[in-house]
Design a protein around this nucleic acid. Structure first.
Lengths: 166, 166
DNA sequence: ACCTGAACACCGTTCAAGT
DNA sequence: ACCTGAACACCGTTCAAGT
């Protein structure tokens, strides 16, 4: 049988949901596809590249259209959207965090842009975006109310520095 | 030759610093000690228990005596102390974060206690302590100035909620 | 009590050879 | 182009047997 790259990614997500990130091995995925382990290396350079593609697909599915709103509401919505995308899959945050270590830019860019539009200095926008993304990654398993409270701490800090005269 | 538990832990830290967390395997550690891999299981139930002991030792070495100071300065000092303890070893934050997932209480307790003494409600103390610890774990590799700025965001948020009339 | 020797059940990755 | 078959170089863990 023949498999396209996208088929492999989708099967990998299914395996992830069934077995968790430790159970998502090249060999298990190959067996799941009815193929030899070595065959996967025709579609992906290695396991890292496969996980990157899986993370991209999970995030792509969670993406929402941009809306016009206040910058702090926009940041909150981006964070909640990221959280929701991760929580749709077993060990989602573990996977995204792993991939995020290799490519932080993709996740942080929209938040940094929003902070920039709000008038934050470059340093603040960069550090703030990073702190928000890592907060979301680190608090996947928290209760929604705790997540909102913790996120509020960061957003309050940002509000104080972006518009001190509020 | 005979090894005490503590000898194994210290050798493990040396291996960690040399090879990083992926290079700290039971087999490499055993070879480093001049012993068969199976021998390690007389000292530790498994790799998790070994890593737990390594993390405990790293944190123990970084512990400082308590001082009497303002609650926000105390939080900052605890966070910087944790950061410094981690940064003394290769992949320190990765190791501590891994162990922290199994036992969050040990790391968060001192921060939660400080927030409690400052008058924070239980929920705020719990969520605040957790956010601070995870911030430190997630920002090990950041520049000191970025770390301070990001930490300041959280501390500002906490100040606003702990003593709103400041 | 502590360690050896040897095995068991896994990994990711490579690559000649087939189709 | 895509996959098989088979190997290579690793893992963590277990356990009878030795001392």
């Amino acid at each position: 049988m023949r498999y396209r790259r996208q088929d492999v990614v989708e099967r990998a997500i299914a395996v992830l949901d069934e077995r968790g990130i430790d159970g998502l091995t090249m060999r298990k995925l190959a067996a799941d596809l009815g193929v030899q382990p070595g065959a996967l290396y025709h579609h992906f350079a290695g396991k890292d590249a496969l996980l990157q593609a899986v993370a991209d697909e999970i995030l792509r599915r969670g993406r929402r259209p941009a809306e016009i709103m206040a910058w702090d509401a926009e940041l909150q919505l981006l964070c909640v959207g990221l959280r929701d995308a991760m929580r749709r899959h077993r060990d989602g945050a573990l996977l995204i965090a792993q991939v995020h270590r290799a490519d932080a830019e993709a996740l942080e860019q929209p938040l940094r842009a929003a902070l920039g539009r709000a008038g934050a200095a470059d340093d603040l926008a960069r550090v703030g975006a990073r702190a928000l993304v890592r907060f979301v990654l680190a608090h996947e398993d928290d209760e929604a109310v705790d997540f909102a409270l913790g996120l509020g701490l960061l957003l309050d800090g940002l509000r104080q520095r972006v518009s001190p005269s509020a």
